[in-house]
Design a protein around this nucleic acid. Sequence first.
DNA 1: TTTAGTACTATGTGTTGCAAGGTACTAAAA
DNA 2: TTTTAGTACCTTGCAACACATAGTACTAAA
Lengths: 115, 115
Amino acid sequence: MEQVNTDNTKAQMRKGVLELCILSILSQGDAYPTEIIDKLKDTKLVVVEGTLYPLLTRLKNTGLLGYRWEESTSGPPRKYYKLTEIGEQYLKELQISWEELVNAVNSTIEKGKKL
Amino acid sequence: MEQVNTDNTKAQMRKGVLELCILSILSQGDAYPTEIIDKLKDTKLVVVEGTLYPLLTRLKNTGLLGYRWEESTSGPPRKYYKLTEIGEQYLKELQISWEELVNAVNSTIEKGKKL
DNA sequence: TTTAGTACTATGTGTTGCAAGGTACTAAAA
DNA sequence: TTTTAGTACCTTGCAACACATAGTACTAAA
């Protein structure tokens, strides 16, 4: 018998929506990775470096993000990421997909609650 | 430059929530796999056999589901899955996790839309 | 000159969704 | 009787992803 692992499922649930959240945050203004992690933490979405950095690189390589280096007075230079025009369009698509998913899941849950 | 792949992200978004949806459907009453796929399709969540069967086996092995065989007059026998008591409790937890996720993501999106 | 804090990067692992292919049962058509 | 269509279940192999872990490097204060 395998173990019941709620935490694992919670982690799985977050897959995919991270991309949406990161693009949303960057639509508010440029940000560097550590800043993004803090902002996600504010909304109860805990993401660690090992997750965020590869994801940002992926988004950059697909042309959704650009970046620039900026000096810091309190440590190493920061890599500020910025939403490209393609990224903005893509974000709108993802927002629609997200709404559709929420509706689909909620309608399934609602049907269950009726009985 | 890699390709921008919306479909892939959509698929990723659904990860984890499938478990929630399947348990929700089974909370409405016992069902066999093909039936579950049809019900998910009704709510715009397309799931294929290669996804569902391993998932059902996993849920059974963790004790969240049980099953029984039932004869059919129109084809091979059907494997009816049923939510166990542990499964019902687990479903409640997942529903809470889902609500938390929706709130977290929506608050991130909302902040973006303000600017 | 050592320590603490900040920041970015790389590697390896486990889980998962899915495509593709396969088996087997029933009933109706050829 | 054989073939075809419909239904249903199952397995294998792959690619993507999140994460743990470990490492490098810069600044400032102790």
